Amino acid sequence: MRLLATTDSTALARAYRDNREHLAPWEPSRDDAFFTPAGQSEQISTHVAGLASGTEVPWVMTTEERIVGAITLTGIVRGPFLSAHVGYWVDARLQGQGVCSGALRAALLHARDELGLHRVQASVLPRNAPSRAVLDRAGFTVIGLAPSYLRIAGAWQDHLLYQRILT
C-alpha cells in the first residue's frame, strides 16, 4: 500500500477496467471515460488536491506488477469531530486473501497515529457480505441503516453505517 501518485493514471485505469464488472454492483455508475488514463488523471487530481488540503488520504494497493485496489480516507473533519470516512476495493482475483483487511488496518493506524482522528466511518450495502466481513474483522460496529443513502449501480440504495472508535 502506498499513496496514490499523479503518475498512476494508466495503471489505475487498467485496474478499474480489469475489475469493471466486479465493482459495478458496489459503485456509482461510471461512464466509459472513467476507465481511461485521462479519466483517471482527473480523478487523481481531485484526490491529490484533497490530500494537499487535508480532507483525504488516497492510497493504492499494489503488487510488484500492478495496482490491485484502493483505499481512501475521505471527508476528514477536524475540531471536536476528528472523523473520516473510509472506502476501499480490491481486485476480484485477490478477494478473500486479506488484502483489504491489511490495508484497512494500515489506514486505521494512520488515521489514529498520524492524523489524530477519533473515529472512522464506513457505509456498505447490506448484501455486500465480503465488505461487511472486512469491517467486522477490523472492529467496526454497525450504528444504523441509512435508507436511500447513495446512488449505486444506477439506483438509490440503503446502506449500513459502521464506525470504529480509534481512541
Rank of each mutant, 00 (worst) to 15 (best):
M1N: 06
L3T: 05
L4P: 03
A5L: 14
T6I: 08
T7C: 05
D8A: 13
L12V: 12
A13R: 14
A15T: 14
A15E: 11
N19Y: 14
H22I: 07
L23P: 14
A24D: 14
P28Q: 11
P28S: 11
R30N: 12
D31S: 13
D32G: 12
F34I: 06
F34N: 11
T36Q: 15
Q40Y: 12
S41I: 00
S41R: 14
S41T: 06
Q43M: 07
T46Y: 10
G50M: 06
L51V: 02
P58A: 08
V60Q: 02
M61T: 05
T62S: 06
T63K: 01
E64W: 11
R66Q: 14
V68W: 07
G69M: 08
A70D: 13
T72R: 09
T72S: 08
G75E: 04
I76K: 03
V77T: 09
R78D: 14
F81I: 02
S83E: 01
A84G: 01
V86R: 00
V86S: 02
G87H: 02
Y88H: 11
W89S: 11
D91T: 12
A92R: 15
L94P: 08
L94I: 13
G96V: 03
G98A: 09
V99D: 04
C100Y: 01
S101N: 09
S101H: 04
G102K: 06
G102Q: 09
A103Q: 08
L104A: 06
R105D: 02
A107K: 01
A107Q: 03
L109D: 09
H110Q: 08
G116Q: 07
H118A: 09
R119T: 11
R119Y: 07
V120K: 03
Q121V: 07
V124Y: 04
L125F: 10
P126G: 11
P130D: 09
S131Y: 08
R132I: 11
R132L: 15
L135Y: 02
A138D: 04
F140E: 06
T141A: 12
T141Y: 01
V142P: 00
V142E: 14
G144K: 01
A146T: 06
P147C: 00
L150I: 01
L150K: 13
R151T: 03
A153V: 09
A153N: 15
Q157H: 07
Q157D: 05
D158E: 08
L161N: 10
Y162H: 13
Y162G: 05
Q163M: 00
Q163A: 04
L166C: 06
